[in-house]
Amino acid sequence: METVAMNQIEKKKLHPHKFTLWVAIASILMMFAGLTSAFIVKSNLVGWKDIEIPGIFWVSTGVILVSSLTIQMALRSFRQREMSQYRLLMGITFVLGTLFVILQWIGFNKLWDQGIQFSGSAGAGQFLYVIFGAHALHVIGGIVALAIMFVKAFFGKIKLYSAVPVEVMSTYWHFVDILWLYLLVFFLIIG
């Protein structure tokens, strides 16, 4: 009886890895808060140049939104022990994530060709490269983790039943997704 009660108390507690992830998310948010507030401060100074966001960033937004959906479905299939479906969905998420980064790169190139470059006077463009670039790096970090989990799901010798790593992965993935939406809206409104 006591054991059962104890277990229920235990269940309410967050797994240390998930907790660590949430603190890490707070930390990453602080970095982007620093960058975006720097943007706001600077946009009020002389010599500021606004930019038009290339349409391709809307495509990448769609891609990352779909990938959020697929990783959530992957988590559900893992919980239901449908491993082949889990592997398929993880693979799709991986491809979509990679596609997102490629689209961002194309977007950067489009801007660059419009003459929005690093050198010279300040403007939203310089911030865009830094802020979207930093975001893309965080997505790439997620892609690497995804790839490792994907490979493990195929070749892993040890069968894993704990859903925690998948949960951590999906939470992080949703985070970079929501972070992207924030950054895009930020640039649309203020940029």
């Binding site: 707070a26 960058l35 010279g120």
Partner: peptide, 27 residues
Amino acid sequence: VLSFPVLLSGAVLLLFDRNLGTSFFLS
């Protein structure tokens, strides 16, 4: 955890200014 990332963003912007000719801090 909450303050070091902000220094990181400052350091990254400074690296851009130093090496890529951006104008985050220079005028």
